[in-house]
Design a protein around this nucleic acid. Structure first.
Lengths: 245, 245
DNA sequence: GGCATGTGTTGATCTGCATCAAGGTAGGAA
DNA sequence: TTCCTACCTTGATGCAGATCAACACATGCC
C-alpha cells in the first residue's frame, strides 16, 4: 500500500527549483508547507484510478509514474510521463481523468486540493508557474504526437531513450553529451504502452540497438549511451531539445 | 496574402463566451479592444512558420487551422487543431514552435504580444481562463495520443468526425445527437496528417463508412451523420465527450 | 528443494496500412 | 471551348510491426 513518508523542509527539496513551487517566496512556501504531505508508492502500484475522486494534487519528488488511458477492449496507451518535478492532478477538477501508475518506486509531495486551489487563486507565482508547466507539457505532448503518428519503431525507442537522458541530465542542470548512462524505470510493457507498440517489438528494437552498438545494455534496466549524438540521430529529429545553450 | 479585416465590437463577437477573453469584465475588454486587430487567411495559406518571430497571439473567430510538425525527411504530423474560440500562440515565447496553416478560410482576432502579456500578468480573469484552456488542450492532446497510438484507421476517421461534430455543436451550446450534418474543412491530405495515415487510406476509409451507411457523403467536403451514436461506436471509445449533461 | 509468477527474449506467421501507380472530376484561366 | 491544376479515388503489391507461441531467467513462497 501507499505509505506516508515523513515531512521534509522545502529548502532542502531536490525539486525546489523546477516544481510548481519554483517561483514561490518564503511566505508562500510556508503556506504550502502547511498543506503538504509525502506519500510513496512501490513500482506497479496504482496511485489514482481514472474516475476516482481526487482530494490532492502534487509533485513528483523522485521516481516515475505514467498516466494511462484505455479503450474498452483493453488497448492501453500511456499519455503522460511523470518524472521528478512534474505536477500531478488538475486544479479545479474533482475527478481524475487518467489512471496514474507508479512505474518505479516513487515519492510524491502532495497538497490538499481545496487549500491548494485557494492559494493558486491568490498567488501569481504559483499560478504563473503552473501555466508555464502546463504549456511545457502541451509541447511535450505534441512532440509525442509526432512520434506516435510518424516514427518507426526504432526511432520511437531511440526517442524515448533521448527523453529519459535529457530529463535525467536536466535534474543536475546539464545537457547530455557524449557518453551517458541512464536507468530505465519502466518494464518493456510500459515502454510499449508509451510508444504505441507491442512489448515484443520493444524488446526486439532495444536488442537491435544493443547489437549495433548504438546503446549498451547493462542488465535489463540500465543503458549506457556511448555516443549521445548518435542516438539522437537514430531518433529521427535532430532538434537540440529546446534547452537554452 | 493575409488580409486585415475591419474592427468589430467584442460584445457581438461569436466566440465571446468561450475564448480567452470569456471571463473578462468590461474594463478588461476595453483594454483588449485597444490592442486587437483582425486578420483573415485563405484556405492553404501559412499563418506562421515554425521558427519565425511571432509578434501576436490571438483567437480563432471562424474557420480552421492546423499546427504542424515535421521530421527532416518530410514526414508531417498535425499536432493541433485550431477551431473557433481556440487560442493561438504562447505568451512568453517569442518564436513560433509550430507551423500554423489555415485549412479553410479563417478569421483571427489578434492581440499584440507585449501588451497582451502585460495584461495577462495583471488580470486573473485572463490568466485563469488561459490556464483552463491550456489544460483542456492538454486533455485533447492526450486523447489524440490514444488515437494515434492504438486506434485502427477506421476508428481514427470516425473519431475525427465525432470531434468535428462535437465542436460544431458546442458553438451553439448543444451536443450532437441522432442525425447531424457537418462540414469537413480539411483536405484528405490534412486529415491524413492529423490522423497519422496516408491520404489514400483516409479516402478508402471514408468511402467505406459511406458505403456501409455509417455516414453519407454530400460532395467531398460535407458529411451527413444519420446516427451520431452509431458513429461514436465506430470510434472505439464510448465516452460521452466529457461535456456536462 | 520445487513451484508459481513476473519479466524478458526469440522465432514463425499474418495482416493492416503504406507504397506505387493510374485515372477520374471539378473549377479556374485563357 | 480546352487545358491545367488541385483534389480525390481505386487497384496491385510489399513490408513493418502485430500476433501467436515457446522458452529463459530471476525472485519469492511453500
Amino acid at each position: 500500500m501507499a505509505h506516508l513518508s515523513s515531512q521534509q523542509a522545502c529548502d532542502v527539496c531536490p525539486i525546489r527549483t523546477r516544481a510548481v513551487c519554483a517561483h514561490c517566496e518564503t511566505d508562500e512556501l510556508a503556506e504550502l508547507e502547511g498543506i503538504k504531505y509525502y506519500r510513496s508508492f512501490e513500482a506497479g502500484q496504482v496511485i489514482v484510478w481514472a474516475g476516482d475522486q481526487m482530494d490532492f494534487v502534487g509533485s513528483v519528488v523522485s521516481g516515475m509514474a505514467g498516466l494511462t488511458q484505455q479503450l474498452e477492449d483493453g488497448r492501453t496507451q500511456m499519455v503522460g510521463l511523470l518524472l521528478p518535478s512534474d505536477f500531478l492532478g488538475r486544479p479545479g477538477r474533482r475527478v481524475a481523468a487518467y489512471t496514474v501508475t507508479a512505474t518505479s518506486e516513487i515519492v510524491l509531495c502532495c497538497f490538499r486540493r481545496k487549500p491548494f486551489e485557494a492559494l493558486l487563486a491568490q498567488s501569481p507565482h504559483l499560478s504563473g508557474r503552473l501555466l508555464e508547466m502546463t504549456l511545457d507539457e502541451l509541447d511535450a505532448a505534441r512532440d509525442w504526437l509526432l512520434l506516435l503518428g510518424r516514427k518507426s519503431a526504432r526511432e520511437k525507442i531511440a526517442s524515448l531513450l533521448v527523453i529519459l537522458a535529457r530529463r535525467e541530465a536536466a535534474l543536475s542542470r546539464q545537457r547530455p553529451k557524449g557518453r551517458f548512462a541512464i536507468a530505465l524505470p519502466l518494464t518493456r510493457e510500459a515502454m510499449a504502452d508509451y510508444l504505441g507498440l507491442t512489448l515484443e517489438t520493444v524488446s526486439r528494437q532495444i536488442n537491435a540497438l544493443n547489437r549495433e552498438g548504438v546503446i549498451t545494455l547493462e542488465g535489463k534496466r540500465r543503458v549506457i549511451i556511448p555516443d549521445f549524438e548518435a542516438l539522437v540521430l537514430e531518433s529521427g529529429d535532430d532538434s537540440d531539445g529546446g534547452l537554452p545553450a
